[in-house]
Amino acid sequence: MDLEDQGIIKGTVDEHGRENLMVVLGSPDAESAEIYAETVTTGDPTYAGPLAGVSLGLQVYHILEDEVKAEIDPVIYEQQIGMMEMVLDKEAISKSVKKIREG
């Protein structure tokens, strides 16, 4: 994850508190989704940015996961995400994010 984005997330957590935040990812493959998910839970795996060694423990989901889909108006979800849901590897992405989320 970009170091500036890490700084923004850290600042947002400081301002609002981790219990009030959830991260919804939109990364296009399982590998990058896993890196992003790891960064906002256990810390920056590359040990390069502001979240290196910082375990935010944020709740993290991917927009393609069924739990997120269930919360969104089906018409809007189809308009905005339908095509992505068809072309991306939903199963692998969901699995990798769930793995990080559930530790």
């Binding site: 990364s27 296009p28 493959d29 990058s32 992003y36 095509m83 992505m84 068809m86 072309v87």
Partner: peptide, 18 residues
């Protein structure tokens, strides 16, 4: 962590065609 940009684009065009 930026993925395969052209591959994702091609999948998107293919999805649109579907």
């Amino acid at each position: 962590g930026s993925g395969n940009v052209p591959r994702n684009n091609y999948r998107m065009i293919a999805g649109l065609a579907v």
